[in-house]
Design a protein around this nucleic acid. Structure first.
Length: 610
RNA sequence: CGGGAUGUAGUUCAGUUUGGUAGAGCGCUCGCUUUGGGAGCGAGAGGUCGCAGGUUCAAAUCCUGUCAUCCCGACCA
């Protein structure tokens, strides 16, 4: 059916919406694809829904192609499965919760949440398989759904790129053996590569943090883009990883047999790395080269905050030219320190220092000798002491002497001090070496469009998903989880495909194959355009036909470019010579084609675009 | 949760400093003209100025409170 602009529920906007910062948000609203309903929540108009459905269909086809089967869960779920998995608590404020009428336990009109709007569905998939399958013969199985998900984002932004309601494809693989699980993972990985290929989106897989649910392998598909919220690194040799997942390359340990004993120097007014380096060079210079920040050991006081609000102080030692990335620290510090739950890492505040009088701000150090350790679980202070992998045995440092205005010079790691555990926590910098030896890293921003990972057996364990194996024994099922942000990908497509006039859809998801514009006086152009539209539809092309009788040519051209269908056909002044104009939206190039040959030409063109 | 900003017509904004009873562009309706790059003329519709108090003869404008939204950061399997 030809879409007629005279009837289409569409109103394009000439002004940019005041709340839209990024291109995709601006253009999708201006071109009449979506409307904001609430912060981070959008309504879909006819054009937007068409594109969304086409995008979903591509994902569906590629999921079906790897043998995954589509199911559909409710978005509204009871809280019990999430309580069992622990995520009712660990997700915290991140989920929308609500109470039904039976939840009025305390007094009327006060409801206690006993339902949630699902942020993701691991629990439900796991329980469904548990419900129906009980034999190894039933596995492996891959299930997926394309669902609306809800997350109560603290700060929704950038239109569809970070919403509180969004469409996501999530699939899950259930296998008896790790080998099968690995195969399911690889199949999903290949399917994602094909999806991005069909969309023409240059999203790349990067090594990712496994997160709090454990698991062994994890990759994110990031679309490189300056407005992206994720930072990843890449090397010339092809190593790619999210900054949260990068591992450092430590230097070789040094021999220290001939290292002189550490010395304490009076270093007044040196409570920052810079003042310390300046003072060291001024009053205690070394022979061969000046001291730099990299010669100092910075002991950063952090606080690990538990979901209950408990504050555990810890100290992370890093070279003085480096900063601690709290987010990276968060990934592992909980398990390192044996603190359970979804923790966060923050900078220590004065109240934290107040509880640990042994910490002299600006002059903190591990102590002068192993016998008199100042930091560490077994030390005088009892404060856990973690160190960056760059601090290797034999490395020598200038660091605090735990007394105001005094520093130790020549403190040797492994000889004079030690630490409870290593930790990856420094901010990754351009030029750091890739862990696989493939060259120096450079950082880029990206939009996370997909995340695939092997979940291991966490959910199947806590929810009791076991099958009988071939020996008749209970075997806990291994799971994989694979997310794909459908609405986010739609926005990313606009980020990747637009110019200052509007959207330029790839043919694979465009709301139509042809945007047909009739312009001119008299009924001839409209009659000719009408007939052309019918012939194009009969030839299998979808058409948006601008049949508005009163709109001026400028308005029609402007709208066509804003809406972004890849091929614009103009029936107008050329008609007197038997011609129509075919314009490529992306290049802007136009050519005249005879009216009689137009259908054949456009069918051929559409075939090359697809 | 910190920092910044803004709430006036469908929309984008002016008006607030200096209080005097509501404005413009775009969009929308009607008529005539116009039709290859966001047309012209004429006539219209449309607003509890976020909300609640207060000051005042009089509040969009001043004061207090409150709510909401946006941006930056924190947060974000």
């Amino acid at each position: 059916m030809t879409t007629r602009l005279s009837h289409l529920f569409l109103r394009t906007l000439r002004d940019n919406p005041v709340d839209a910062e990024v291109a995709s948000h601006r253009l999708l609203v201006r071109a009449g694809y979506i409307r904001r309903a609430a912060p981070g929540i959008y309504s879909w108009l006819p054009l937007g829904l068409t594109v969304l459905r086409r995008l979903e269909q591509i994902v569906r086809e590629e999921m079906n192609a790897i043998g995954a089967q589509e199911v559909h869960f409710p978005a509204l779920l009871p809280k019990e499965p999430y309580e069992i998995s622990g995520r009712w608590k660990t997700y915290g404020d991140g989920i929308f919760v609500l109470g039904d009428r039976k939840s009025e336990e305390v007094e009327p009109r006060v409801r206690r949440p006993n339902y949630l709007l699902a942020p993701t569905h691991e629990e439900m998939f796991t329980l469904l398989v548990k419900d129906l399958y009980s034999s190894y013969k039933d596995l492996p199985v891959n299930l997926y759904q394309i669902q609306t998900k809800y997350r109560d984002e603290a700060r929704p932004r950038a239109g569809l790129l970070r919403g509180r309601e969004f469409v996501m494809k999530d699939s899950y693989s259930f296998c008896v053996t790790d080998e099968d699980q690995h195969a399911a993972y690889e199949a999903h990985r290949a399917a994602y590569v094909r999806i991005f290929d069909r969309l023409g989106l240059p999203a790349v897989p990067v090594a990712a943090d496994n997160g709090t649910m454990g698991g062994s392998a994890s990759e994110e598909f990031l679309f490189p883009c300056d407005i992206g919220e994720d930072t990843f690194v890449e090397s010339p040799g092809g190593y790619r990883a999210n900054v949260e997942a990068v591992t450092s390359v430590p230097p070789e340990p040094e021999a220290y047999d001939d290292a002189p004993a550490a010395v304490v120097h009076h270093t007044p007014g040196t409570d920052t790395i810079q003042t310390l380096v300046d003072a060291a060079n001024a009053h205690h210079p070394r022979q061969d080269r000046p001291w730099t920040a990299a010669d100092t050991l910075k002991n950063v006081v952090v606080v690990v905050v538990t979901p209950d609000g408990e504050r555990h102080v810890a100290i992370i030692a890093v070279p003085g030219d480096r900063d601690v990335d709290f987010k990276r620290a968060e990934a592992t510090i909980g398990s390192t320190l044996g603190i359970e739950g979804e923790i966060s890492v923050e900078a220590a505040e004065s109240e934290d220092f107040a509880r640990h009088p042994g910490l002299v701000a600006g002059y903190i150090g591990p102590g002068m000798s192993l016998d008199a350790a100042h930091l560490g679980k077994d030390s005088a202070t009892g404060i856990p002491y973690l160190a960056d992998p760059r601090i290797v045995s034999g490395s020598r440092w200038i660091t605090g002497a735990n007394q105001s205005d005094y520093h130790v010079f020549g403190l040797v790691a492994g000889r004079d001090f030690t630490w409870d555990a290593p930790i990856e926590s420094v901010v990754v910098q351009d030029g750091d070496p890739a862990p696989d030896g493939s060259g120096p890293l450079s950082t880029r921003r990206g939009i996370e469009l997909g995340h695939i990972f092997m979940l291991g057996r966490y959910f199947s364990e806590v929810l009791g998903l076991k099958v009988l194996d071939e020996n008749g024994k209970q075997s806990t099922v291994a799971m994989g989880s694979y997310g794909f942000g459908v609405t986010r990908a739609l926005a990313a497509l606009v980020e990747a495909n637009h110019d200052d006039r509007g959207i330029i859809w790839p043919a694979a998801v465009a709301p139509a194959d042809i945007h047909l514009v009739a312009t001119g006086k008299g009924s001839e152009v409209f009659e000719a355009a009408e007939e052309l539209a019918q012939q194009l539809e009969a030839a299998g092309l979808s058409v948006i036909y601008d049949d508005r009788p009163k709109a001026s040519p400028g308005v029609k051209f402007g709208d066509a470019e804003l809406v972004g269908v890849p091929t614009i056909v103009v029936v107008g002044r050329g008609l007197a010579d038997g011609n129509v104009e075919v314009k490529d939206r992306r290049s802007g190039q136009a050519e005249n084609v005879t009216l009689t040959g137009a259908v054949a030409h456009l069918v051929e063109r559409a075939a090359t675009l697809r």
